[in-house]
Computed example of a mutant assay.
Amino acid sequence: MTPERLGERLSGDRKVRAVAQAGSYGTDYAWAGSQPTFLTFERGLLSAQTEMRGGVRLERFPYEQLEAWRDWDLARQQAPLALLATSRVVYDPTGFYGRIQRTLWNLSAAQLAAYRSDLTLQAEDALNAAEGVQSGGGQPLLALADARRVALDLLYPALLTRLHAWAEFEIRLPHAWRAVAGLRFPKAVYRLENLYGFGGEAEARRALLATRGLGLIEQERRARAAFQSGYYDGAVRLLRDETARLHRTDLERWAYLSSARRDKLGILLGVTLSPLGPAAVDLARQLLEDVREGR
């Protein structure tokens, strides 16, 4: 089933009360790795779900959230704001989806500043927790993974509030943050990049080879598409974050892993190119200050 046909089918489902398309697929910014993505709000759904249907990603939400997220104070705590703000409405009989988008597009400077403060405070708490990770074994890698997560999930979106912009969520993320924020906030983007230890085409090739035997089949497929299109750092970013997410137990059991498995995980996480342990947390703290000061 084509994405267009799926969109029509979703719009015709009586349980579905809103449909929107997200990402670059079908736009002027589409590329070979663009993944068709739909957001739906459905009656009878108890919690948010992500699923794949014939190569199309579905982000499904309960209808009650469509009603609730019209309130900015609730939305900023619960909603996937970037997805909502940048998606294209396909079906919205209640008008609630459009209302949410207009709220996001027209936030005042004071509202954006308050949201930025919320994000930076959350980041500070998370970095304090990461700082408690002890050295030895895989713990320096856990600290690095946590510092990256804080930077990507909290500090980069906080930086973008200064531009009233929303984070790219596709594999081309590093290329997007350079284009969107690099000229205005060079220090923040510099520190963000240092956390990931990018190394261009050569590093992307090494990371792709290291995925073998680690169960990263879908991640390798997507990263390879980015590599073939020239998005080398995008491929590396995806593999670094997905490795940390899917193999956190391995990092906790580092001393018990075989040397071959440690070598592969080390390449994927960028141990020779990235700060580890307290150094990673310290770099994230510098990024936090750059975001607060708009540097």
Rank of each mutant, 00 (worst) to 15 (best):
G7L: 12
E8L: 08
V16R: 09
A22Q: 02
G26V: 15
A32F: 02
Q35T: 15
F38Q: 10
L39K: 01
S47C: 00
S47V: 01
G54P: 06
G55L: 01
R60L: 11
F61D: 02
P62D: 05
Y63V: 09
L66G: 14
A75F: 05
R76G: 03
L84V: 09
T94C: 02
R99S: 15
R102D: 15
A114E: 13
D118S: 05
A126F: 09
L127S: 12
A129S: 12
Q134V: 15
R148H: 08
R148K: 12
R149K: 14
R149C: 06
L152F: 02
L154A: 13
L159F: 04
W166N: 06
E170D: 15
E170C: 03
K187N: 10
A188G: 11
V189H: 05
Y190T: 12
G200W: 07
E201Q: 15
A202R: 14
E203D: 11
A207H: 06
L209M: 04
A210T: 07
L214R: 14
L216K: 14
E218V: 04
R222I: 06
A226G: 11
R245I: 01
R248V: 08
A260Q: 09
R261W: 01
R262D: 04
L265N: 08
L269E: 05
G270Y: 05
L273E: 14
A280W: 07
R285I: 03
R285G: 02
L288R: 04
D290G: 05
R292C: 00
R295V: 03
